[in-house]
């Protein structure tokens, strides 16, 4: 059994996008180490509701690390101090008794705060709509063996495709750059035969949309890959740079 811990939770509270936010402290008592970070917030919210206060607003959905909805900047790290997990997979046993845990929303011009810890990440959807897809011809289905793909390529594409679009890369980046996300989304299609038709157009359109939405310029600090809950590497960014530069040179 995990030990129970008591700690102080310092949470960013902000009424709305335009409102001025501030930190509020909440003492937490006897929380089991087996409680997930989001369950711990649920417990706090139950208490707040019981006292007639406004509960803390935060994003969450699947709570098993695949949907990319949860966020939270915990003690200076997106998705908390543990590597390779999302906030919903973070457990209270990773924290010490008596600690002060600071919880902040993603902070980036591209992701404005909606309320408390919830930020607007529609910018990522807009980037995807700009070219993060493949066109499929309708009609009779193609023969399954018509486009063979090597194991290495399939693995590489799968690694890129594991990006859940949570926005931790932007949150971690001192430049507010979305390059890790965009590069993963471009890579997963650029190396597969199915993605070749729109390959050149995709790289240009997605980068243009990313720039337009106010994300910063990548300076290769590698903070994104260190904090990515899915361990996406910056080799994707190198590939996106290649794709983009060669696409522009062809023009």
């Amino acid at each position: 059994m995990d030990k129970n811990i008591s700690f102080t939770l310092k949470v960013w509270r902000q009424r709305g996008p335009k409102a001025k936010g501030e930190f509020k402290e909440y003492p937490m008592k006897d929380i089991s180490g087996g409680t997930s970070f989001l369950e711990m917030l649920d417990i706090l919210n139950e208490e707040l509701v019981g006292k007639g206060e406004e509960p803390i607003v935060f994003d969450h959905d699947c709570r098993e690390g695949i949907c990319g909805m949860c966020s939270l900047y915990v003690n200076g790290h997106p998705h908390g101090p543990e590597g390779g997990v999302t906030t919903c997979q973070l457990f209270m046993r990773k924290f010490k008794d008596g600690e002060t845990i600071t919880v902040e929303p993603w902070r980036s011009a591209g992701f404005p705060v909606i309320r408390d810890l919830m930020v607007d990440r529609t910018a990522y959807d807009t980037i995807m709509q700009a070219g993060g897809y493949v066109s499929v011809n309708t009609g009779a289905p193609q023969d399954a063996n018509a486009t063979p793909i090597s194991k290495e390529i399939a693995d590489e594409a799968m690694d890129s495709a594991s990006c859940i679009g949570c926005g931790a890369c932007v949150a971690a980046c001192k430049n507010g750059s979305a390059m890790l996300f965009v590069s993963a989304k471009v890579s997963q299609l650029a190396i597969l035969p199915q993605g070749q038709v729109e390959r050149v157009r995709r790289a240009k359109a997605m980068v243009a949309k990313m720039d337009e939405l106010g994300f910063g310029n990548c300076t290769n600090t590698r903070a994104c890959e260190a904090e990515c809950p899915k361990n996406i590497t910056i080799s994707n960014i190198a590939r996106l740079n290649r794709e983009f530069i060669s696409a522009k040179c062809k023009d």
Binding site: S177, T219, T221, R222
Partner: peptide, 25 residues
């Protein structure tokens, strides 16, 4: 541009992961 892209509010707590070089930031 990068400073602007960071938004108006700054993080209260920041921590540099081990794989991030000090010079890069």
């Amino acid at each position: 541009q990068n400073y602007k892209a960071r938004g108006n509010d700054r993080y209260a707590v920041t921590d540099r992961p081990k794989s991030v070089e000090w010079s890069s930031q």
